[in-house]
Simulated scan of single mutants.
Amino acid sequence: MDSPHGASVKAEDFGLKGPRGWAFRGVGIDAAPGSLIAVEGPSGSGRTCLLLALTGRMKPTRGHAEVGGHRLPKKMSAVRRIAALGPVSGVNDLDQALTVAEQLREGALLQRHYGAPVRSMLRPRAERRAAAEARIAAALEAAGLDLATLPKAERTSVRDLERLESVRLSVAIALLGSPGLLALDDLDLKLSDTERTEAWALLRSVAARGITVLAVCSEAPADAIVLRTCPKDPDAPAEAEAAAEAGGTKSDTENDTTNDAENDDTKGADDALAEAGRA
C-alpha cells in the first residue's frame, strides 16, 4: 500500500435533519490525523447517518465539517475520495457468494479502476497483477487477517467467516485504496468481549499507521475521541426521515419502523449513497 496520510476531522454544530426530525445535531470535534474516533450511542440514535455524513455519503443540513481539509457539504466528492468504508450494513456488504480470494480481487480491481492513476493502467498485465497481489498482501497484514488460518484458506466462502474475520476482511478491502480515513459501522455488533478487544486493537494498529479511524459502537474505549449520539425524542422521529430527505424514499422510511433495531441506523443509506456517489 502507499504511505498513508491521515485525514483530520473537524466539525462545528454539525447536523442532519429530515422532514420530521433530526438524525443528529450539535456535533463538534477537532481530531488530528491518525486519531481513533468512536461514535458512541444506542442503535437508532443517528450513529450511521453521522458516519455517512462525515465520509461525504450524506449531505448535512446544519453547521459544517472538514475532513482532510475538505469542507462539507461543499466538497463531498473530495471527501469520498479519501474516506473509505469498512463494514457498513446495507451499504457495502461483502458478497456472501464469493470466496475470500474473489472478494479481495474484486476490491483490488475496483480500487484500480476508480482510484488508481491513469498511468498505472498502461503498465503490462503481469506488472499490474503483481502490484495488485502486493497491495492485497499488505492490506491483509494491516487488517490482521491470515488466510492460512481460515478453514479453506483463500478459498473459504465469505458466508463461512466468523464476524471478526468479516470485519478484518472488510478493513483489508478498504485499505487497498490507502485512504486517509477509515470508517466502520456497528464495530462491536455480535462480538464477544474478547473479540471486541481484538477489534479495537486492530483499529488502534490502523491508526498507528497514520490512518484516521472512525468507528460506530455501543461502547467506546477509554483511549478514543468520543462522539456521542442520543436516543431520539418520541416527538422527533428517528433518523430514517433524515435519510429519506438525503435521498431515500417513503417506503424506506416506513420499513425502518418494522425491522430489527440493529439495522435502524442504515435505512435509506443505499439511496443516499446513490445520490451522493460511489462508496
Rank of each mutant, 00 (worst) to 15 (best):
G21V: 02
A143C: 01
D223C: 05
T229W: 05
A97L: 13
D252F: 01
G26L: 01
T48E: 03
L191N: 00
L85H: 11
T258V: 13
T55I: 05
A126R: 15
D160T: 12
E40T: 09
D188E: 06
R278M: 11
A276K: 06
D264C: 10
A143Q: 00
S77F: 04
P42G: 08
L150K: 04
L98W: 00
H5F: 09
T197M: 10
A207K: 02
L94R: 00
L145F: 08
R62E: 15
E133H: 06
V206S: 03
D271T: 09
A215N: 01
D252E: 08
D13N: 15
K74I: 11
L182K: 04
A274P: 01
R125V: 14
T149R: 14
L164Y: 07
E165F: 05
E275T: 12
K250R: 13
V9E: 06
R204G: 10
I82P: 01
L189M: 11
A23K: 02
G21I: 02
D95S: 10
D93I: 02
R62I: 02
G277R: 09
E275L: 14
L203R: 07
M1A: 12
S3F: 10
V158T: 05
G115V: 00
W22F: 06
S251Y: 01
R123A: 15
D235S: 15
P124M: 08
R47L: 04
R20M: 06
R168T: 05
V27M: 10
A238Q: 09
D270H: 13
S43W: 10
L85A: 03
S35V: 01
D271H: 15
S166F: 02
V9N: 02
D252V: 03
A172M: 02
A116S: 14
A97M: 10
